[in-house]
Design a protein around this nucleic acid. Structure first.
Lengths: 181, 181
DNA sequence: CTGTTTACTGATTGATTGATCAGTTTATAG
DNA sequence: CTATAAACTGATCAATCAATCAGTAAACAG
């Protein structure tokens, strides 16, 4: 699975074949369908592994926040830090999200449900509103905007003059203003 | 090329083969490499067509704005309206961006240059700062955040309770606060 | 009508894909 | 040490891919 992540990140989804993965892992290509029965299953397991590790990291940082505002800050900071420190994992995540298909044939990032990645953020925003710390707004749409601003960083992070810390500071500033009463 | 866009949006990059495109266009598969010499060239031309049409639409809306604040509003509104009215074009754009490779082998969305899609937005922000209308911030990073918030809408637009107009209004509100002095 | 260019087709090629399977090696259990 | 199960390999399969090419149909110019 580590070799799968590397291959996805380096070669892209299209070129991530059993042969390519096996070459990196230095195993026979036929060993993969022996363990995973299916390519889709290999991808699904890989995705699950990445998502779990990422969620755990972000949540671990978020819970240390005393207020909703602090938790929002840490959410942004941790998400961007994850991208900065594990770009390979995130690259693999994107490759899967934009190429893998659910059993019904729909692309994963367009699946009707799967708001799982947004629930933590939404709950932070809702808590802030209940506490009277944040102004009134739609938590779902605000969460989409925040998440988009975070995700966009990955495509830009390798370009000259773009680094984690200043972008994190900017995002925190932007969305602190956005939720402030 | 219309068939190419449809195939990309419906089937995904992986399944967008000469055979699939030809079936939709009701032509022989071998006619495509006759006109385009290369699959990469077909994709490049398709991408250029989509990008040009999109840029023209957004720019047409933006120039009608009297102030930088108005132009920013129209940029957000027009970008989201484009996604809402031409989801097929945007889906194809994403498929290409996350799968096609530049001649040097790098995936397009990670290419070092190609800030072309951001220049208009950056120039709006810089103008607003020069006019004293906007506060001091890094225009490039602000543009990345805005663009991310816009792009994220595409993945969420088909989910229940998410529509163009309210999301556009929210984004305008968020980033008006973000750039305000 | 004729000659020539252009548009188009169907057949075919070599390479790569995911997957299966018979057989071999390694680990584990008694 | 032996027997059984698990891990693993290499050969092989049909399907699909981009691309080539010889040959046909259509458009067009004089």
């Amino acid at each position: 699975m580590a070799a799968t992540i590397e291959t996805l990140a380096d070669e892209g989804y299209r070129r991530t074949s059993f042969a390519q993965i096996a070459k990196r892992a230095q195993i026979s290509a036929s060993l993969i369908p022996y363990h995973f029965a299916n390519k889709d299953e290999l991808i699904a397991h890989t995705l699950e592994g990445i998502a779990t590790g990422w969620d755990a990291y972000v949540e671990q940082q978020v819970v240390t926040g005393a207020s909703a505002g602090q938790r929002l800050e840490r959410y942004i900071q941790a998400s961007l830090a994850y991208m900065g420190t594990r770009p390979t994992h995130f690259a693999a995540l994107i490759e899967i999200a934009f190429n893998a298909r659910t059993p019904d044939g729909k692309l994963m990032y367009r699946s009707d449900e799967d708001d799982t990645g947004l629930t933590l953020l939404v709950s932070i925003l809702e808590q802030g509103q209940q506490d009277g710390e944040f102004r009134a707004f739609d938590p779902r749409r605000m969460a989409i905007a925040i998440r988009g601003a975070i995700n966009e960083f990955f495509g830009a992070m390798h370009k000259p003059g773009v680094a984690v810390e200043p972008y994190a500071d900017d995002l925190i500033g932007i969305f602190r203003r956005a939720v402030a009463r």
